[in-house]
Design a protein around this nucleic acid. Structure first.
Length: 1070
RNA sequence: GGGUCGUUAGCUCAGGUGGUUAGAGCGCAUCCCUGAUAAGGAUGAGGUCCCUGGUUCGAGUCCAGGACGACCCA
């Protein structure tokens, strides 16, 4: 009966993980981890709510892996991490998904269909995708409290959002204005930027140069200009916007000129003279853009009378000299930049186009015409009035509606705003308190975004969203912002016995639209404004709304227990999304940052380096990798491959690599341990010696393990995941390839002495500790190790590794001289292997020894305690230190640039040359005898001490020598007859062991071996017969000259071109 | 057009505060080890460190300009 469960040779990580998932489920491990005592208090993590409107892709897996790592880590460290799940349920993406399902192309269809039913379907759609998200999150081990999830559509959540808006309203920060949005006049709907990006096409538009006649005088600086015959020359590709022109803009720093052309004076930027074909015309005046400021011109059209002063020149840095004339026509209704110019200069707002894309009735000449159709008429009109300088066509990329292919207009919509510009300083100040990883996001992308913050366009003309809680009087325009359901109930008098049950009270459209009351000012009807709000406000409200603050859990927020967050992490694109809205709302309502540490993740790109996106069709299916390589492999790849903020090219091969680099070697160490622990019936509960009484190698690996625990903790505390993962990988490498490899004999040996038990205890302790150390990274394999290695032997052990304490480094476990010695020994071994390679003498062939040469006088003492390990590893008999280094090496002497550079300056060049040209060995002698080297340079004598110099050993040609810095190893290549015999015996052992492996014998299986072979192999085998028998576990071993190939249990092999016949019979019952 | 990041071996990436032999992993070639290994080790081939200037005794690293790519915003 085996003590440890046998490790399956045909293991499958995905299958193991499925078992672990079932185990977590049946033992309710996650709930237990939430209930774990938390002596260190709360660690607050906010789940950025995903909008469940599509299937998750590898990028989402990355995010969720990172978001899982820190909560697990902190939980094991004795913090309580609530890990409340959340879902962003509102918004245009969801609506579009449902519109597609229903085959709708316009808002009118939704209204006909019924908003109530439409919204119900939106909710249904979100719920459907939510299931897929939960499925993959669960499979990759992302623990999140779904039982206690927040949803942005619930009455509780929505009420908090209203409350927050009311706080902002009370500060006077909410106002109504216009927002320029890409708009499809046919579908009657604005498009999101994402939609706009889907359908850019090269299109031909008019390209016209229009003359605007100057009305006032020119401020006296160019009196020679003809009065009434001086014009600003302006370029545009959208003639129809000229009807709504209110100003012209110039670059204040650019040079403008007036040229004489056909009896008129035309003003434009000097740089663009050639482009407009006016470079041959005489320049009659020159001025800076700023000189033109506030000059009035005659409007081209005056169908619509402006309510304030317009039609004059303004200045702006945005005016470029790349194309056109350097003078830009401004129509605030039809462009974001134009709109901002309008605000900044208090220009009138003129809009000659209605929501259907037609010219308004006031413009009698073209009333009712579609804007694109009106272009030709306007062109003709300008031509007739001789205001057209030139007209051609122009091909450029222009966006079209992805649904109906109509050209989009940039159109000013009435819209509600939050005056975030008023809290800019507070936003910047609070940003100073956030630890951004990587740092440059905080100062760069995010900081600069805050620095140039614009007012937040809050409202949307849509259906499925949090209704804007503003009511307006139909008669007098009085406004009221609602801050709670009870307030709304009191005012409007609706009846509902439960305000938080949506079947009794639903605050969504269309129900909320029906709630009205009498205006307190004039007795008119208070009616809700038609908008819903930007769903980004919903998600940014989550610190408060997930707890229904302040209606519930008031103390958790006000007392700091759940606000602000210690840690959040999302992808880069959230900088202006969730990161911003969290920050803005927290700043406006609490004047506090919403989060203390923010880890910003890079994008996951396809193998060609492009962002994965639905429209490109390059989105990889994460399930493939999960099913084939497993979740731990996926996780380890993301955590160890590259810094998480670096955009990464993703491929399954890369995941397989990390599997081979980490999970498989770890599994092999585990499997090795189990095989021998069972053979020797090792009991982990048996008494173990203190660490410092164990063997050298044991002490060494325990020291390394403790160092690892410290490094991982330090790195994770600083959110440096890759560094932590790489330390872990580095440790596993020395564990597997040095500790276990060098300790194998102690596990194999038949004597059950202290050395053997020390090895078992050491490896066991490390595997057990390691399982806890890697638990946040690869939770499945960690759990497997815990279940198989720890739990059966420790009745007190927690049910799951995730309920254990995170390892803490024991600073007492330290022996610097041991570490230095072993490191040096490793260096020697590496050189020895290299020398053997070079000499083509395989390691199985024992050699007399190596000679080490160094100018480091301490090294021999440091290495001496490890000479047995070195001898064994290199299969040599002795290690010697050369008395007379000159036999083996030459020297190379260079100045130590870091020391001498600052001292000597330019002279260092000459010193370098002098050192290189002098015989090195003489310099070394001079240095060792006098303690210095004196050089005669052109600038005088220079004295150099040994610290100023970098003396290196260089192997002489023709020796089997290898060098690493100042340590040189020379391999003794002489193979004496005795060494040769020993080598042949080891060849024979190797053949028998290979046979054992081919025959798939058990590790403990005893065998009977007979052989038949010619000289000289025969006598070598006979001489080492006892050693051979012991090595291959042969109970009976001897020569049998008559063996023949065709006999049963006889196998042929070859040693140095000599045929060997080996008869191998397993001994029954052994 | 503005902003941010990046460009180092065939591929994926490391390379605080400048220091003269620029590294790792994968892949390739040759060899080795294996009584845990699906692994592992050694050696080799493979680099104008994107380009051009500048600062400096000295630049992959600092500065300026440019090219290319990605992303964000217009």
């Amino acid at each position: 009966m085996s003590r440890f469960e046998k490790v399956d040779a045909t293991y499958s990580f995905p299958e193991m993980e499925e078992r672990i998932l079932e185990f977590w489920e049946s033992e309710d491990v996650f709930a237990k981890s939430l209930a774990r005592p938390a002596p260190n208090g709360n660690y607050v993590f906010y789940e950025g709510p995903p909008t469940a409107n599509a299937l998750p892709h590898p990028g989402h897996v990355l995010t969720r892996v990172i978001k899982d790592l820190f909560p697990r880590y902190k939980t094991m460290q004795g913090y309580h991490v609530a890990r409340k799940a959340g879902w962003d349920t509102h918004g245009l993406p969801v609506e579009i998904e449902v519109e597609k399902e229903l085959g709708f192309t316009s808002k009118d269809e939704i209204e006909e269909f019924g908003i109530a039913e439409f919204n119900r379907r939106c909710l249904e759609s979100v719920r459907r995708y939510e299931k897929e998200w939960r499925r993959i999150s669960n499979r990759i081990g992302f623990w999140l409290n779904y039982e206690d999830a927040y949803f942005t559509f619930t009455n509780e959540y929505l009420e908090t959002v209203w409350w927050l808006l009311r706080q902002i309203w009370d500060q006077g920060l909410i106002y109504e204005g216009h927002k320029i949005v890409p708009y499809c006049y046919r579908c009657g709907t604005p498009l999101s930027s994402h939609e706009v990006a889907q359908n850019y096409k090269d299109t031909k538009d008019p390209s016209i140069y229009v003359k605007f006649r100057i009305a006032s005088d020119m401020h006296g600086f160019c009196t020679e200009l003809a009065e009434g015959k001086t014009y600003f020359l302006v370029w545009t590709t959208t003639p129809w916007t000229l009807l709504s022109n209110v100003a012209l803009a110039v670059n204040p720093d650019a040079e403008y000129v007036a040229v004489f052309h056909s009896g008129e004076h035309l003003i434009l930027a000097r740089e663009l003279l050639e482009a407009t074909g006016l470079d041959e015309e005489p320049v009659v005046a020159s001025m800076r853009g700023s000189d033109l400021e506030s000059i009035d011109y005659e409007p081209l059209y005056s169908f619509i009378t402006a309510d304030k002063r317009g039609h004059y020149v303004v200045t702006g840095d945005f005016v470029t000299l790349e194309d056109g004339t350097g003078i830009v026509h401004i129509a605030p209704a039809f462009g974001e930049e134009d709109y901002q110019v309008g605000i900044a200069n208090d220009l009138p707002f003129v809009c000659a186009v209605d929501e259907r894309g037609n010219i308004v009735p006031e413009v009698t000449q073209w009333a009712g015409r579609n804007v694109k159709d009106a272009d030709a008429g306007i062109l003709n009109d300008l031509k007739e009035r001789e205001l057209l300088f030139r007209s051609t066509t122009y091909t450029h990329a222009y966006p079209f509606c992805w649904r109906c292919d109509s050209p989009l207009l940039y159109y000013a919509f009435p819209s509600w705003f939050i005056r975030t510009t008023a809290v800019r300083d507070e936003l910047l100040a609070n940003n100073e308190q956030i630890n951004w990883v990587p740092e440059h996001i905080g100062t760069g992308r995010f900081g600069q975004w805050l620095d140039g913050v614009v007012d937040w366009a809050l409202s949307r003309n849509r259906f499925w969203g949090t209704p804007l809680p503003i009511w307006q009087c139909e008669s007098c325009g009085e406004l009221h912002c609602i801050g709670s359901y009870s307030e709304l109930q009191e005012l409007s008098g609706f009846e509902a016995d439960d305000l938080y049950d949506q079947s009794k009270f639903n605050p969504h459209r269309p129900f909320v639209d029906e709630l009205t009351w009498e205006c307190a000012e004039c007795g008119g009807k208070m009616r809700r404004v038609p908008h819903v709000i930007d769903c980004w406000f919903d998600s940014g409200a989550m610190p408060f709304a997930q707890h229904h603050y302040p209606f519930e859990h008031k103390d958790d927020i006000d007392g700091g227990a759940q606000f602000p967050a210690d840690f959040i992490s999302e992808a880069l694109e959230q900088t202006r999304g969730w990161f911003y809205t969290l920050h803005a709302i927290a700043t406006m309502v609490k004047d506090s940052p919403a989060f203390k540490n923010c880890l910003v993740l890079g994008l996951i790109m396809d193998e060609k380096g492009h962002k994965m996106s639905k429209s490109k069709g390059n989105v990889a299916d994460p399930w493939k990798v999960i099913d084939r390589q497993g979740a731990d492999a996926f996780r380890w790849y993301f955590l160890s491959a590259t810094a998480p903020w670096v955009s990464t090219r993703y491929s399954e091969t890369a995941v397989v690599n990390s599997l081979q680099k980490f999970l498989i070697p770890l599994w092999n160490v585990y499997s090795f341990f189990v095989i021998y622990a069972n053979i020797d019936d090792f009991d982990p509960a048996s008494p173990a010696k203190p660490w410092d009484e164990r063997e050298q190698l044991d002490r060494w690996i325990l020291i390394k393990y403790n160092r690892l625990a410290r490094e991982v903790t330090e790195n994770l505390d600083n959110y440096r995941i890759t560094e932590a993962a790489r330390s872990i990988e580095g440790f596993l490498d020395i564990l597997s390839n040095w500790y276990v490899r060098r300790s194998r004999r102690r596990f194999w040996q038949s004597e059950k002495d202290d050395s053997k038990w020390n090895a078992y205890h050491t490896l066991y302790e490390i595997l057990a500790g390691f399982s806890r150390l890697i638990a946040p990274f690869t939770p499945f394999l960690a759990e497997e190790l815990h279940q198989k290695l720890v739990r059966p032997f420790s009745p007190d052990a927690p049910v799951s590794v995730h309920l254990c304490d995170y390892p803490v480094a024991d600073r007492a476990v330290s022996q610097p001289e041991l570490e230095a010695g072993m490191d040096a020994a490793l260096r020697v071994v590496k050189l020895g292997h290299a020398a053997r390679n070079l000499s083509k003498i395989k390691v199985r062939q024992p050699l007399g020894g190596v000679t080490l040469v160094t100018n480091d006088t301490h090294l021999p003492d440091v290495i001496e305690p490890y000479s047995d390990i070195i001898k064994d590893e290199l299969n040599i008999k002795s290690i010697g230190w050369a008395e007379e280094a000159k036999d083996y090496v030459d020297y190379q002497i260079k100045p130590d640039f870091a020391r001498l550079g600052p001292r000597l300056g330019r002279q260092i060049r000459e010193v370098q040359k002098l050192l290189a040209s002098s015989p090195a060995s003489e310099l070394v002698t001079q240095l060792s005898e006098t303690g210095q080297i004196v050089l005669n340079t052109s600038a005088g004598e220079v004295k150099l001490e040994s610290e100023d110099l970098d003396v290196r050993l260089v192997e002489k040609e023709g020796t089997a020598a290898q060098r690493d810095g100042n340590l040189l190893l020379v391999l003794d290549l002489e193979i004496t007859p005795a060494l040769r015999e020993e080598g042949l015996s080891r060849e024979f052992i190797n053949r028998v062991q290979n046979l054992r492996k081919t025959l798939q014998l058990d590790y403990e299986q005893r065998i009977e071996v007979k052989f038949s072979v010619g000289e000289p192999v025969r006598s070598a085998i006979l001489k080492y017969a006892n050693t051979i028998a012991a090595e291959v576990l042969a109970l009976d071993f001897g020569e049998e000259p008559g063996l023949a190939d065709e006999q049963p249990n006889v196998y042929p092999a070859e040693i140095e071109d000599l045929e060997v016949l080996i008869k191998l019979v397993p001994v029954k019952g052994k």
